[in-house]
Amino acid sequence: MHMMDIVQNSIRAGASNVEITFIENKTDSSLTFSVKDNGTGMTEETVRKISDPFFTSRTTRKVGLGVPFLKMTCEQTGGSLTIQSELNKGTEITAVYRTDHPDCLPLGDLAGYLVLLLIANPKMDIKFTYRLGDEKFEISARELGENEIDDLNSAGMSAAVKEYINENLKELFLVRKTESYLC
């Protein structure tokens, strides 16, 4: 859920490049989730306020819950949230989770959300990386385009891309030596 929610902020900030990265560290039981974009960025004051659920830059409603929820879920595992942003340059938001904490939430349907992001934002270069130790799985809109895989908006292909992501993540997760709360 967080991935789609935070990337939606990047989309709204007019980003053309979004890098979604998960780094699972086996030795210190941590998962670092980050979203980096080249959108409009934020002022220092906005960055300070962004974790406040009653702050939003929208005019259609009075609450902004995406970042506060992310902060809550990582901090409840003993992790932390950091935001680096520069006006007109972009934003990087990084959440660190302790994966050995019982309150660490499962990853959820990463492949499903990622496919929807790729379908719904055909003009955006979205890059997804999941790194586990020395192994990693990467997929990007650019790479798919270079391989002329561009029919994602059809039911068959969206399911095929989802299967491709799931199969590769499943294989990557075999690297884990112990069972993980992340699933």
Partner: peptide, 10 residues
């Protein structure tokens, strides 16, 4: 499992 498989499918 590979981009080649994806392309074939497409």
């Amino acid at each position: 499992k590979t981009l080649a498989d994806l392309k074939l499918k497409q």
